[in-house]
Simulated scan of single mutants.
Amino acid sequence: MKIGIVADTHMPARAKRPPSALMKGLEGVDRILHAGDWTELEVLYWLEELAPVDGVAGNNDGDDIERQFGRQKIIEAGGYRFGLVHGDGYRSTPENAWAAFFAAKPEIIIFGHSHVPYKEQRGETLLFNPGSPTDKRRQPQFSYGIIELGEQGIDAKHYYYDSKE
């Protein structure tokens, strides 16, 4: 199973459409997970053209997005449990994400908020932030992630590009 991981699209403020590198990179995924700060539901409709989408709301999302997705959840895919949260709060973003699912102990925790690509294995749990496909802030490139689940386990990678056009 191949899962596209996206967060912090901040559309339309940061881009009018999803970047072509993102859309091309997500072609062929079985599912897409969005870790919040969509800012407009139109992002959902574009991503749904590629695969089924699930996600959570972030601190910049309105009530409509929060009602539809909630702020935190655990989903199952490919025999693994994913904790999905935006990651905003009073600690560092990875620590907020870790604390959100500390008791549940999913195999994978997906988060956003910082716009910084992040990958860390903590015991049996992978923490993964895809970065942002439209707002790289101080990062050298825009980014998203792909997680492949199979007999060999979990393979999580970041993908980078220079233009959000």
Rank of each mutant, 00 (worst) to 15 (best):
A57R: 07
S92M: 13
I65Y: 03
F111Y: 11
T39V: 12
Y144K: 11
H86L: 07
Q121P: 04
L41E: 06
E95L: 00
D88G: 14
Y144E: 13
F69E: 04
K73S: 03
A77V: 10
L126T: 09
G55F: 04
S20L: 06
W46R: 03
A103P: 05
R81Q: 03
K157G: 09
F101H: 02
L127H: 07
G4E: 02
V53M: 01
R122C: 01
S143T: 02
W98Y: 06
A97M: 12
S114I: 05
L126S: 11
L26P: 10
F128S: 05
Y80T: 08
T134H: 01
S163L: 15
A13C: 14
L149A: 09
R17M: 13
D8F: 01
G150P: 00
H34I: 07
E49S: 08
D88K: 10
R17E: 08
G89K: 04
E27G: 06
K24G: 06
N60M: 14
P130N: 00
K2R: 15
R14N: 04
L22K: 03
G83R: 04
I5Y: 04
A7C: 05
E107P: 03
D63T: 14
N60L: 05
A77D: 14
G123F: 07
P12W: 04
R91T: 10
S92R: 14
S114F: 02
A57H: 00
P19N: 10
A7L: 00
Y118D: 09
E165V: 09
D155C: 05
I146P: 10
A97S: 11
T125F: 10
Y144P: 00
Y161T: 00
E120T: 01
R122W: 04
V85E: 06
M1G: 15
Q139D: 11
A13I: 15
N129E: 03
V85G: 09
G123L: 11
K24S: 04
T134K: 05
A51P: 00
Y45L: 07
N129I: 02
S163K: 15
L26K: 09
A7H: 03
F82H: 08
P94N: 11
G4T: 03
Y45M: 00
Y159N: 12
E76L: 06
L26M: 08
A15G: 13
M11C: 04
K73G: 09
G78K: 02
Y80W: 15
K157A: 14
D63G: 12
D61W: 09
D61Q: 08
H86Y: 07
L44R: 01
L149N: 14
P140E: 14
F128R: 12
I32Q: 07
N129C: 01
N129Y: 05
G79Y: 01
H115I: 13
S92T: 13
I110N: 10
G145N: 09
E107W: 03
Q72D: 12
G55E: 06
E76D: 12
E151W: 04
P117L: 08
G36F: 06
E42H: 12
G153H: 07
H86R: 08
A77N: 09
G62V: 05
A15M: 11
L47P: 00
Y144W: 15
K16E: 15
L127N: 10
G28N: 03
S20A: 08
E66N: 06
A21R: 10
L127K: 11
D37S: 13
N129L: 04
Q121C: 09
S143M: 05
